[in-house]
Design a protein around this nucleic acid. Structure first.
Lengths: 198, 198
DNA sequence: CGAAAAGTAAACTCGCGGGTGTAATTGGGA
DNA sequence: TCCCAATTACACCCGCGAGTTTACTTTTCG
């Protein structure tokens, strides 16, 4: 890796860390330069402005967004097993500390600067597409009756996020009873399948 | 209403409007003073600082938070009808433009300043409590089998928010198929009840 | 090697915006 | 009517932080 590319990568990494920790507004460019072990001028040579830097990060985040992979329907496996696997994969992703930190930064900015919303909708669309494909397959296979796969996918993901994402994102601890992931996933999959079984 | 109280109320109202429109960071105290038809000094006499002003707004928002009322279980009515009523009430609240604007402001700040999170959790807890009471009642009445009412309530509200709140909050338009509220609510209630019926 | 490209340190500009001080004005209650 | 507290206009302070300039050193590469 060339020296200049290395520098650029260092700066980007430092920026991510700082933004994660302090938020966009409370991170200064000097701070980023220090953390990256680079001079402020170099930072500005690579990314034209603070805003430009943020965009670079968002772009990077998008490029890595093909995280969720295996959601293939399997005619041999029982439905609960399959759906639990998918659900756990999603929940694990959402629960990941670094993912959440990044989401916090991006979303907090997104709330007031709607320019990036298209990018974000791509993210959520990705999961939805995977899930609705699975449901369509199960439907075709005659094991499920899902008239609107996209709607069903939204319902399913909505429940998972209500458990694993939103409360943690906003630092809201759920009431006294924090339920174990396995219990929640089992219960949700069971209810969902019962609601859509033939 | 005394003159000074009137002034205070005007300032608060103006602040809400400005924060709603431009966000916390992009609203200046001068701007608020202008919009309120008050002098900057008066603003500072009433609320010690920008932060103090924001807190006053949050407090006001909390005071008005007993919006959702009727969630009483009725042994005579069919379950789908009852649950649809509740669901529509919740969705209507979440969809309300002014509620969403306020939530945008508060949540965007909450993401990076966790101090207020306790207040927010109160809000969500309120809906959850109402719903889980309803479910417990239906359970006791032998019409539903809900082992964990709180969990079920989270699931239900989670689905509603995934449809009516989060996408709109982040200005994310759902893919080509924007589904009508009645269809979504019907489908969700049906699936949920089928998943939990005896 | 030697020149061009990239990086550095530090001082600097500059506008913004939160917050204050003050002297003059208003207005409502006794 | 008179007084005192609230209000106002406006100038002012000041720290912060984005972005720039400059004079210099280091790296890359033909």
């Amino acid at each position: 890796m060339k020296h200049t590319d290395r520098k650029r990568a260092d700066i980007l990494a430092a920026a991510v860390t700082e933004f994660r920790t302090y938020g966009y507004d409370n991170t200064t460019m000097d701070q980023i330069a220090d953390a990256a072990g680079a001079s402020k001028r170099t930072v500005y040579n690579h990314f034209g402005s603070k805003e430009g830097m943020f965009e670079a990060i968002v772009r990077e985040m998008m490029d890595r967004s093909d995280v969720l992979t295996g959601g293939e329907y399997d005619a041999e496996q029982p439905l609960p097993r399959q759906l639990k696997r998918i659900a756990n994969e999603i929940v694990d992703t959402l629960k990941d500390e670094s993912y959440r930190d990044l989401a916090r930064v991006v979303l907090s900015r997104l709330l007031m600067v709607p320019e990036y919303s298209a990018l974000i909708s791509e993210q959520t669309q990705h999961i939805n597409t995977m899930l609705s494909r699975w449901m369509r397959a199960a439907h075709r296979d005659g094991r499920l009756r899902v008239p609107r796969p996209e709607l069903a996918a939204d319902q399913f993901v909505g429940m998972l996020m209500a458990y694993a994402f939103w409360p943690a994102l906003f630092n809201v601890e759920k009431g006294s009873t924090t339920i174990k992931q396995s219990i929640f996933v089992n219960q949700t999959v069971t209810m969902f399948l019962k609601g859509y079984e033939c």
